[in-house]
Design a protein around this nucleic acid. Sequence first.
DNA 1: GCCTATTTAAAACGATCGTTTTAATTGTGT
DNA 2: ACACAATTAAAACGATCGTTTTAAATAGGC
Lengths: 212, 212
Amino acid sequence: MTQIDTKTRLLDAAECLFSQQGFAGTSMREITTVAKANLAAANYHFGCKEDLLSAVLERRLLPLNQARNARIEQVLTEAAEANMRPKTEDLLRAFIEPAMAFCNAGHNSNAFVAIIGRSLTAADPAVRDRFLDLVRPLLTTLHQALCLALPQLPRELVLTRLFFTIGALGHCLCFSSITPLCEPNSSDTHKHRETLTQDLITFVTSGLESPC
Amino acid sequence: MTQIDTKTRLLDAAECLFSQQGFAGTSMREITTVAKANLAAANYHFGCKEDLLSAVLERRLLPLNQARNARIEQVLTEAAEANMRPKTEDLLRAFIEPAMAFCNAGHNSNAFVAIIGRSLTAADPAVRDRFLDLVRPLLTTLHQALCLALPQLPRELVLTRLFFTIGALGHCLCFSSITPLCEPNSSDTHKHRETLTQDLITFVTSGLESPC
DNA sequence: GCCTATTTAAAACGATCGTTTTAATTGTGT
DNA sequence: ACACAATTAAAACGATCGTTTTAAATAGGC
């Protein structure tokens, strides 16, 4: 068998269609058609549509958040060894860069980032809750780390500003998928994405470090 | 007839349901049931579901954006009279405050803000395009005004940072509807919303004014 | 009174939805 | 070879969808 796993093809198709049309706007028949698989195969592998969504989210989000978590821990460790406070910008970079880099990670993960960007504020509670369960631990870690970097600020204010940061990031992830900024896969796109990432980090770092 | 217009009841119901379940996740039958109207009445007044969405958007967004536009013009006029540059914070306040204040504007407009927050990055192009057409002029005006306030920054960077600002604002609008921060209509809610608004303005002002 | 616009009731249109079932067929490991 | 998991094909399940139609009833303006 030279072609990809049916299960993987289903995940790829679901990811692509969910990102373009949303969860409610995508049918199981569309997914199986794009995946060139049988309609029954989807339910056979994933049970129901909502569990397919969970599988789509988990496949990318678990490793992504693991990478972000590792980078945050690294920033904290290096700061502790130097007997200094971690820098706000370093923490935010550890949180943002892996997500934005996902756009260029090959496969069709650039479709996935739009799902991330939208899931947090999704109207459908089924989407929102399944997503929130996957990111809550990371956000808690990041919040605590940011409080170390910004001891002069009330913890509650840091959390509020972290919310703003997430909003800005999510908006970026959505738009870089909706509106391909240049021709896809061109070096221009790469460069622009890197610029955009740095612009975002600069923006939210200033926002978070703003005096109380 | 002591009760409200059928047309208005349909708009209210659609607004409420769209904000809670999204456009694709809400059926015409749900809307007419909540509105205590006949199913045929919805199509009679609005034609089709998409045009109903447009009507829902326009009812609140036109006056809201008109108010924001007037406040931006006022900031520009006062700055011109004083022979000074407009302040970034004043412009951002003119843009943000009316939207956030909408949460407490009575009727059920607090449901509407979630629609605003989500529409910009909606998966469904029908939703996104109809929304974008209603806000594009305002965003153009705001961008130009911000360039006057930040002449040291490239216009393109100002636009990028305005995108981040919109993302943070949209995220706020969504969450203040999803998670009622306190008991609704309590003075606590009012106070918290005002605090949140000021926190957001402080955050994005710092972000926009960050050195290049 | 008459005209027109609203609104209701009820039913039907064809279409699509998520899911399940049944049967036959492939592939893989042992 | 046998067993078991994966996959296909095709059909059907009941349900819901957006929209239209037909008919009757209700209101308000002139």
